[in-house]
Deep mutational scan, measured.
Amino acid sequence: ERVRARYDYEAQNEDELSFKKGDIITVLEKDDGWWKGRNGKEGLFPSNYVEELE
């Protein structure tokens, strides 16, 4: 599954994923509120910062 970033997100910890608004992220795992994904790097990000691609 792929999602698009709705906002910029700056990683707060080294296991998190940074991205810019409009970036496409491949979702690897979904957990409550935090998803694991890849966009060149791999890490956790808040699920409310992304939207599913149509």
Rank of each mutant, 00 (worst) to 15 (best):
E1T: 14
E1S: 14
E1K: 12
E1A: 13
E1Q: 14
R2N: 10
R2M: 13
R2Y: 10
R2P: 04
V3G: 04
V3Y: 12
V3M: 11
V3P: 02
V3W: 10
V3A: 09
V3H: 08
R4W: 00
R4E: 06
R4C: 09
R4V: 13
R4M: 09
R4Q: 08
R4H: 05
R4F: 00
R4K: 11
A5G: 06
A5E: 05
A5V: 08
A5N: 02
A5F: 00
A5Q: 02
R6S: 09
R6K: 15
R6M: 14
R6A: 11
Y7R: 14
Y7L: 14
D8G: 05
D8R: 00
D8L: 00
D8K: 00
D8V: 00
D8E: 06
D8H: 04
Y9G: 04
Y9F: 08
Y9N: 05
Y9Q: 05
Y9D: 04
Y9A: 02
Y9T: 05
E10F: 11
E10I: 12
E10Y: 13
E10M: 11
E10T: 12
A11M: 05
A11K: 04
A11R: 00
A11P: 07
A11E: 05
Q12M: 12
Q12E: 10
Q12D: 08
Q12L: 10
Q12W: 05
Q12K: 14
N13G: 11
N13P: 02
E14P: 15
E14G: 12
E14H: 09
E14A: 14
E14R: 07
D15A: 13
D15G: 14
D15W: 15
D15R: 12
D15K: 11
D15N: 15
E16G: 06
E16S: 01
L17A: 04
L17Q: 02
L17G: 01
L17V: 06
L17C: 03
L17P: 03
L17K: 02
L17T: 02
S18R: 02
S18Q: 04
S18K: 01
S18P: 04
S18F: 02
S18I: 01
S18E: 04
S18T: 11
S18W: 01
S18H: 04
F19C: 04
F19S: 02
F19R: 00
F19L: 08
F19H: 02
F19K: 01
K20V: 09
K20A: 10
K20Y: 06
K21W: 05
K21P: 03
K21M: 11
K21I: 10
K21N: 05
K21T: 10
K21G: 06
G22K: 02
G22D: 08
G22N: 08
G22F: 01
G22V: 02
G22Q: 03
D23T: 08
D23E: 10
D23Q: 08
D23V: 03
D23C: 06
D23M: 07
D23L: 01
D23P: 00
I24T: 06
I25S: 01
I25H: 02
I25Q: 02
I25D: 02
I25N: 03
I25P: 01
I25W: 00
I25V: 06
I25A: 04
T26W: 08
T26H: 10
T26E: 15
T26L: 13
T26M: 11
T26A: 08
T26G: 06
V27Q: 01
V27K: 01
V27H: 02
V27D: 03
V27L: 09
L28D: 05
L28I: 14
L28C: 08
L28T: 12
L28Y: 06
L28N: 03
L28A: 05
E29F: 12
E29C: 14
E29P: 02
E29S: 15
E29R: 08
E29T: 11
E29G: 12
K30D: 04
K30Y: 07
K30P: 03
K30V: 06
K30M: 07
K30R: 11
K30C: 07
K30F: 07
D31H: 15
D31Q: 15
D31A: 15
D31Y: 15
D31M: 15
D31P: 09
D31W: 15
D31T: 15
D31N: 15
D32H: 08
D32K: 11
D32A: 07
D32M: 06
D32W: 03
D32T: 09
D32C: 10
D32Q: 10
D32V: 07
G33D: 14
G33R: 11
G33E: 14
G33K: 12
G33P: 14
G33S: 10
G33N: 14
G33Y: 15
G33F: 15
W34R: 08
W34N: 05
W34Q: 07
W34V: 04
W34S: 06
W34K: 07
W35K: 00
W35L: 08
W35A: 05
W35S: 06
W35M: 12
W35D: 05
W35C: 07
W35Y: 09
K36G: 04
K36S: 04
K36I: 11
K36T: 07
K36M: 12
K36P: 05
K36Q: 07
K36H: 09
G37K: 00
G37A: 00
R38A: 14
R38G: 08
R38P: 04
R38D: 14
R38V: 11
N39P: 01
N39F: 15
N39C: 13
N39L: 15
N39W: 10
N39T: 13
G40M: 09
G40I: 12
G40Y: 09
G40S: 09
G40N: 10
G40R: 08
G40T: 11
G40C: 10
G40H: 12
G40D: 12
K41N: 12
K41G: 11
K41H: 11
K41A: 10
K41E: 10
K41C: 08
K41I: 08
E42S: 10
E42M: 11
E42P: 06
E42C: 08
E42N: 06
E42A: 09
E42Q: 09
E42I: 15
E42D: 10
E42H: 06
G43E: 02
G43I: 00
G43R: 01
G43T: 02
G43Q: 01
G43V: 01
L44M: 14
L44A: 08
L44C: 11
L44W: 15
F45T: 04
F45V: 03
F45L: 04
F45R: 02
F45E: 02
P46G: 04
P46M: 07
P46Y: 04
P46A: 04
P46D: 08
P46C: 07
P46F: 03
P46V: 02
S47W: 07
S47Y: 09
S47K: 11
S47A: 14
S47D: 07
S47H: 09
S47I: 08
S47E: 09
S47N: 09
S47Q: 09
N48G: 12
N48C: 15
N48E: 14
N48P: 06
N48R: 12
N48H: 14
N48V: 10
N48Y: 13
Y49F: 13
Y49W: 08
Y49K: 07
Y49A: 13
V50W: 03
V50D: 01
V50M: 06
V50F: 04
V50S: 03
V50C: 05
V50K: 00
V50P: 02
V50L: 03
V50R: 00
V50A: 07
E51M: 06
E51C: 08
E51S: 06
E51D: 09
E51F: 02
E52D: 14
E52K: 12
E52H: 13
E52L: 13
E52G: 12
L53E: 08
L53P: 07
L53S: 07
L53A: 08
L53G: 06
L53K: 04
L53I: 15
L53H: 07
E54Q: 14
E54T: 14
E54P: 13
E54N: 13
E54K: 12
